[in-house]
Design a protein around this nucleic acid. Structure first.
Ligand SMILES: [Mn+2]
Ligand SMILES: [Mn+2]
Ligand SMILES: [Mn+2]
Ligand SMILES: [Mn+2]
Lengths: 218, 218
DNA sequence: ATTAAAATTTAAGTATCCTTAAATTTATAT
DNA sequence: ATATAAATTTAAGGATACTTAAATTTTAAT
């Protein structure tokens, strides 16, 4: 276990790399809510510790060592999320913040024990994959951003972004959860909103909301 | 939630006060494994934050505010210990270190939820009382240090000190756990060791070992 | 190709929590 | 009562991880 700050940088960079986003000082600063200057400082440290490849003004990349370590942190985070959701009974809009702290305070033994207890889950409560002990990642089903789904098409909710608790809570309130079938009934170019059917309810959601929901089409 | 360091100082001071030990720079330094100088530094900060009463060279005392806060931390620690032991299945020699980290990383909501799940336990896996939300402490049964129990007397194990994992692990291995009946068969003045009966086994334990075990006599 | 905007880094400084070494105060032994 | 030992505090300094402001480099626009 290194320090919390290092762990947070690494898992943020890891998640960016996973989603094919070029890793830059700027994005890290926004994600971690700190100044660009602080990020530059830390990048030098991470680099000199062999955790990232870094050249001034260039993109950032995890080394093998950095990626392995980051996977451990993301693994801890997502296993905690499942545990908090399934065993402790916290709703999906409460698990992220809690897991974000706990991820830095738990031994590998504890995480392994919890994982076993949960029968080796592959995905967290928001549909994100849980890295295995060896760093390998369960293959994600292909998914389509709900905002890109065409009128008349339908599919099942397979993943949602977990950054915003209010968003997640709202999804719960409209009955949207992983596995739910969603049909796009109409789309309004005027405000990019969508009319969708969930269960037997029809509901209008904004384009921004839709863009944080991912669908397994057909 | 304040910072981890503050929380560790407060809970250490709290535990010393609970066991009627005069709180001094020295003891805190030993318990937290840091220099006396660092403790003096921090005592000034705690004092200026209204968490302790402190005058140079004098004994230290928690204020109401400090005691309330400390009780929250000790509560978190012990609820985690029970949870890890009962729900996760960790042995009693593994729960303390884990809980010592988790105690600084969990919201009150999570702790309350876990407490409810455990049906409001009063004592942790080592027999220490769990402070309630209002800071009140379950009354301890009177107990006698095993090293003070006389030949022929018997009673049930009601509490053990939880500082040393090797000690706790050894107790497990000789079948000693909370609630077990122990009879003192013999005492050797030569080395202060005791011959005790646990279940149907007789075993010789050192005085030092005995002095970390507490018995509910009769 | 120039220029303006955006991103990034450097510089200087702060807060926290440690360290060791030296000075001071308190406690203990005779 | 005095000397010695033990405990405590002060002093000076280090590592980490931030901050804002200024300087530099890259990118994007015309
Ligand atoms: Mn999360
Ligand atoms: Mn984190
Ligand atoms: Mn404990
Ligand atoms: Mn602690």
């Amino acid at each position: 276990m290194k320090n919390i700050s290092t762990e947070n940088y690494l898992s943020e960079i890891y998640k960016l790399e996973q989603s094919k986003i070029k890793v830059k000082t700027n994005i890290i600063a926004k994600k971690l809510d700190i100044s660009n200057a602080a990020v530059t400082d830390m990048l030098k440290k991470l680099s000199s510790n062999g955790l990232i490849l870094y050249e001034r003004y260039k993109n950032i990349q995890l080394t093998k060592k950095g990626k392995d370590y980051a996977a451990v942190i993301v693994r801890r985070h997502r296993i905690w999320e499942i545990f908090l959701n399934q065993i402790v009974g916290l709703p999906w809009d409460k698990v992220h913040d809690e897991a974000h702290r706990l991820e830095h305070s738990s031994s590998d033994e504890l995480i392994d024990r919890i994982e076993e207890m949960l029968n080796y889950p592959e995905f967290d409560p928001h549909g994100d994959p849980i890295p295995a002990k060896d760093g390998s990642i369960p293959k994600l089903k292909e998914s389509t951003n709900l905002s890109k789904v065409k009128i008349g098409e339908w599919g099942k909710v397979i993943r949602v972004n977990d950054y915003d608790n209010e968003f997640l809570n709202y999804l719960s309130r409209i009955g949207l959860k992983l596995g739910k079938k969603i049909t796009v009934k109409d789309k309004l170019n005027f405000d990019n909103s969508l009319l969708i059917k969930i269960g037997d309810k029809q509901i209008n959601i904004s384009g921004k909301l839709a863009s944080n929901i991912f669908i397994d089409l057909n």
